[in-house]
């Protein structure tokens, strides 16, 4: 699971062009939106594409993303559950 979390942080930084953010600066429980990383609605769509492209997971209902993308912890838990 910790490898997946590390991988998610690296992918988020690269794919969302978070130029001034390092992996070490993202805590597993940090909120990804709002006061945390400050991601926006377009970033949310990019994360949905990332789930599909890199993990083969399609979100049938984009509203699901609200819970899944809360933090690195929730994303990793969701991906692990889907892959199990």
């Amino acid at each position: 699971m910790s490898e997946l979390k590390q991988e998610l942080k690296e992918k988020i930084i690269e794919q969302l062009n978070l130029e001034d953010v390092s992996v070490e600066e993202i805590a597993d429980n940090d909120p990804l939106f709002g006061d945390g990383l400050g991601l926006d609605s377009i970033d949310a769509l990019e994360l949905i594409v990332m789930l599909d492209k890199d993990y083969g997971i399609k979100l049938a209902d984009p509203k699901e993303g609200r819970k899944i993308f809360e933090s690195i912890n929730t994303m990793a838990a969701y991906i692990s559950a889907k892959k199990a």
Binding site: L16, N17, I42, D43, L45, E46, V49, D52, K53
Partner: peptide
Amino acid sequence: YYPSPAVFV
């Protein structure tokens, strides 16, 4: 086929 919303905008 993975169109990027961030590029599309």
